[in-house]
Design a protein around this nucleic acid. Sequence first.
DNA 1: CGTCAGTTTGAGCGAGCTCAACGTGAGTGG
DNA 2: CCACTCACGTTGAGCTCGCTCAAACTGACG
Lengths: 238, 238
Amino acid sequence: MDSNCPHNGSIHCGDCRMNALCLPIALQADEIERLDRIVERGRPLHKGDYVYHAGEPFRSIYAVRSGAIKGFTVNNDGVEQVTGFYLPGEIFGMDGIGHPNHINAAISLETSAVCEIPFARMEELSTQISSLQRHFFSLMSREITNDQQLITMLSKNSAEERIATLLTSISARNARRKLSGTRFRLPMSRADIGNYLGLTVETVSRVFSRFQKLELLDVDKKEIEITDFDRLKAMANT
Amino acid sequence: MDSNCPHNGSIHCGDCRMNALCLPIALQADEIERLDRIVERGRPLHKGDYVYHAGEPFRSIYAVRSGAIKGFTVNNDGVEQVTGFYLPGEIFGMDGIGHPNHINAAISLETSAVCEIPFARMEELSTQISSLQRHFFSLMSREITNDQQLITMLSKNSAEERIATLLTSISARNARRKLSGTRFRLPMSRADIGNYLGLTVETVSRVFSRFQKLELLDVDKKEIEITDFDRLKAMANT
DNA sequence: CGTCAGTTTGAGCGAGCTCAACGTGAGTGG
DNA sequence: CCACTCACGTTGAGCTCGCTCAAACTGACG
């Protein structure tokens, strides 16, 4: 297998293009190796494959190496609530920490590769490497502040503001990975976007059309080109 | 000062009525003492006093000993978003972990007492006491799942469902503290409730009136009596 | 007694939902 | 190669829940 292929299952943390994003900066080379030894690299996931189901025993957290993952809960009426989209270099699965089982489920939105990090061994390792413990606290806290931003958005912002915010967020996360911040493919469906943002599919579709008419975007199905980033940014809540 | 007074500033963790709620069960007596030594007990807070401001350097997390605390963010337009209400035995301030400064602010809704737990010392202690580390991960993860429940509510539930859910949540948290789950005083204003639940004050007020007409509640300003718990629970999303 | 923050109630409006129809493209089988 | 299906996306028309604006009430506190 080509060692540069993003789905490559045998690559090590030290060589992974994403390591600047998912590992703490301050880690020593020998510490990276110790971490590398506990990370399990699964086979590629296809669209629709579950990483884990709700209710499944919590064993691990995960890092996205390639593709895109959707996290969601299902409430007692069977209604799905999308809680986040995870792109390469991002960590997910922290909902299970402190519970015996996963509260959420996670599913692959396209062909993806993830690293599985067994939590018990991670916990143990982080008592020995304090920068790793700090990194973990930090990741979870970032998850909290992310959720709180979503809460603010759901409770205060209009449909247009919500969608502008999502697009600028994805743009920024792509830029962080040295990809284009203005031209990208949305990995999720309109239904997922609507579910995440508390809107119906129809509203999402209408807002995309309106943004195109306003010459903020060029939309071709899932391919997005942001043609007026500043104006889009001004509509978002950040 | 009376050692049973809930605002008493000199009580130790080992004697605190709340310790079953805020400490990990598995802690040994000597470990409790080590924790106790790092906890700082401030003077009582009055209504409107800040525990910490947004932007303030992050030093500590906090446990509520008595009273009630409101956590909130202020976005760039100066609009407030309430992110949570914290009752005795609950931990707050975790938004600052992993950031140099607090993202949120926290304010006292009534006369309250809080324990301040310097985070750096806590972090250090939890490398030594693994059940404390696990407890911390667990607290943060509970904060995440709480936030996600709120997200689901904001994105899927009607005004009536949201308010029914808040009331049953406060009821359950009172019951956990061996207080009445059907008769209690709401520590927060209608405006705070509305802000938290993504509703206007008027809507909150109307729903309370409607619930009273439906004989679910007896409302007298902030005093609430739940007169038909089962029906209220059925309206809530849990 | 006046003031002021918090709450309640009413009347009208509008953003986003519901319901319905139609368009589009990928996959499948004849 | 076309016909068919099925998931997904778009567009339109009408309705509704919760918002906005306005006014009046309550009680705490100087």
